[in-house]
Amino acid sequence: MNISLHGKRAIVSGSTAGIGLAIAAGLAEAGAEVVINGRTEGRVLQAIKHIQSKLPGAKLIGVAADLSTLDGASRLFARVTRADILVNNLGIFAPKAFFDISDEEWQHFFDVNVMSAVRLSRHYAPQMVTAQWGRVMFLSSESALQIPTEMVHYGTTKTALLAVSRGLAETLAGTGVTVNAVLPGPTRSEGVGSFFQQMAEEKGVGSEALERDFITENRPTSIIRRLATVEEVANMVVYLASRQASATTGAALRVDGGVVRAIA
């Protein structure tokens, strides 16, 4: 299968590191013009240099904006007026006991993980409908299906994204615009790597051993028995962005290494 996204413009929110950066690189490699987004100009420029070092001919646009806020989203809308592909990747996570999560933290998680995706989809999807072609994706998580007790607020926001994704897909039925959710499992992203490194230092063990123990103790249903790579997640997104994925919509596609014990 030869995936070509030449002539398409993609926006990837939260794409300066981890899964978002890998998705941006994958879309650029397929020929798309990609909008790189992060909260600071420095991080955005660093991400652009990283991609260009591997793909010298990549077409990239950098927009520094905090998309968890209306002001930040408005800044993106003013700079990038059109998109063919929208990947709502921006998200945060933080392990915390349920009884210690404040109202402010709940609201912050919803602003970052859910409302950023709602705002961007509400703005760009109508343009895709007019063009009779478009791709909208939401980065959810296996935690949407198996709410982690160590971060209930995170899992709840990821479940919300599944509802938004399916609802928007049905709203856009017959328009030529597909809408899907992607559910990564435990993935070796920058944030997760830092989390494991910190835990390893606190426990006085190696990070690789800690990762193996995490899978064994916390995700024992994993079939691949390891963390996924960010590139493995990005590959699914690149496919969904392609013309070849025209009949895939309203779906929640897992890249979880088999963690979720379900046939469908």
Results as ranks from 00 to 15, higher is better:
A65I: 02
A25N: 14
N89G: 02
V12A: 01
I215Q: 11
G167T: 08
F214V: 09
I215Y: 01
A200H: 07
E105F: 13
E170N: 09
F138M: 13
H123L: 00
L70T: 01
A251P: 03
H123M: 02
I19N: 09
T178E: 04
I224W: 02
A160S: 14
I85F: 08
A47K: 06
A181T: 05
K158D: 02
G185W: 07
T69W: 00
I263P: 03
S13V: 05
K96E: 14
R219K: 15
E41Y: 07
S68R: 00
I48T: 04
N235D: 15
S189R: 08
V44Q: 07
A264F: 13
Q146S: 12
L168E: 08
L161N: 09
V233E: 07
V259R: 01
G72S: 01
R122T: 03
G204I: 14
Q46Y: 11
K203I: 10
S13W: 01
T229N: 03
F99E: 13
M236K: 05
G191K: 09
L55T: 06
S242T: 13
I36L: 11
H108R: 15
V35R: 04
I11H: 01
L55A: 01
G155R: 13
E190A: 08
E201R: 09
N235T: 13
G91C: 01
R212V: 13
R135D: 14
I147D: 01
L139E: 09
N113A: 05
S102I: 12
I61H: 06
Q127L: 15
